[in-house]
Amino acid sequence: MSIEPIPADLSFAVPGSEDQLTRAAKGLTERGYTAHVVDTPEQARDLVRDLLREIGTDKVVFTANSETLRVSGIQDEVDGSGEFRSLRTELAAVDPQDIRTMIKAGAAPDVIVGSVQAVTEDGVLVAVSASGSQLGPYAAGAEKVVWVVGAQKVVPDLETALRRVWTYSYPREHERWRVKGMESFVGKLLILEREYQAGRATVVLVRTEIGF
């Protein structure tokens, strides 16, 4: 049986304006996050590398499944360079059927690097997942969190952020799996209103479109 595509609202692929990025960075800062704005995915990759070095190369780093990390080269940088302790590399020796071991290891890594599906102009983050494996570490399990977020994910408010999830991010992810003969779905949704621990979470906003 063929898997039907889901139409995506391509208006959500348009990068936000400089004013929107400025407001989002300000909103994030006021909500307890460290915010950076960079021009390109390459600059984001370099900044993430520097941040991970500052945190410590002895720390275990979990790269969440993310088109943003893949396209920017951050996933390869963390998991393939040998400079950092990659959780994915360490779990390569675990039996793929031993799901509980992998879930437990990913639930509380020293650091998680990933992305979100939307950021509001006043600094609220929205992340979605099929399995939810990255959402626990995002919320509290990881000691440090770094999110890399394309400018097209900056939206005016939470209502628009949720609409972006269902009409753009989900259809794009569904299409990515459809060409492999599988379906995607939204299994878990996390709304991050504020970070309670100063210095724990960093958001790197990229002025270009990257990721879903």
Rank of each mutant, 00 (worst) to 15 (best):
P5K: 11
I6R: 07
P7C: 03
A8P: 03
D9E: 13
D9P: 06
S11H: 11
A13E: 12
D19W: 00
L21W: 00
A25P: 06
K26R: 09
G27C: 06
L28K: 04
T29A: 15
E30S: 14
E30K: 15
R31M: 04
G32T: 10
Y33R: 08
Y33I: 03
T34L: 09
T34A: 08
H36G: 05
H36W: 15
V37D: 05
V37K: 05
V38I: 12
T40G: 02
E42W: 15
A44F: 15
D46S: 15
L47S: 03
R49S: 14
R49G: 11
D50T: 14
L51P: 01
L52T: 10
R53T: 12
R53A: 04
K59F: 12
K59N: 11
V60C: 01
F62T: 07
F62P: 03
A64W: 00
N65I: 01
E67D: 11
R70H: 12
S72I: 13
Q75V: 04
D76V: 11
D79M: 03
G80Y: 01
G80V: 01
S81G: 06
G82K: 10
E83K: 11
E83W: 11
R85V: 14
R88K: 14
V94I: 05
V94D: 11
P96T: 12
P96A: 03
Q97I: 03
Q97Y: 12
I99W: 11
R100C: 06
R100F: 14
T101P: 07
I103F: 05
I103V: 14
K104Q: 11
A105C: 01
A108C: 03
G114A: 04
S115T: 15
V116L: 02
G123K: 04
G123A: 09
G123E: 06
V124A: 09
V124F: 02
A127P: 05
A127I: 01
A127S: 15
V128E: 04
S129Q: 03
S133P: 01
G136S: 10
Y138D: 13
A139E: 12
A139W: 05
A142M: 04
V146A: 02
V146N: 08
W147Y: 15
W147T: 14
V148I: 15
G150D: 07
G150Y: 14
V154E: 00
P156Q: 07
D157M: 09
D157A: 13
L158N: 11
A161P: 03
L162Q: 14
L162C: 02
W166L: 00
Y168P: 01
P171V: 06
P171C: 02
R172W: 03
E173Y: 04
E173M: 08
E175C: 00
W177Y: 13
G181M: 13
M182T: 06
M182D: 02
E183A: 08
V186Y: 00
K188L: 01
L190C: 04
I191L: 05
L192N: 08
E193D: 15
E193I: 00
E193V: 01
Y196V: 08
Y196W: 08
Q197I: 06
Q197P: 00
G199A: 09
R200L: 08
V204H: 02
V204M: 09
L205C: 08
L205W: 03
T208Q: 14
T208F: 05
I210F: 10
G211W: 07
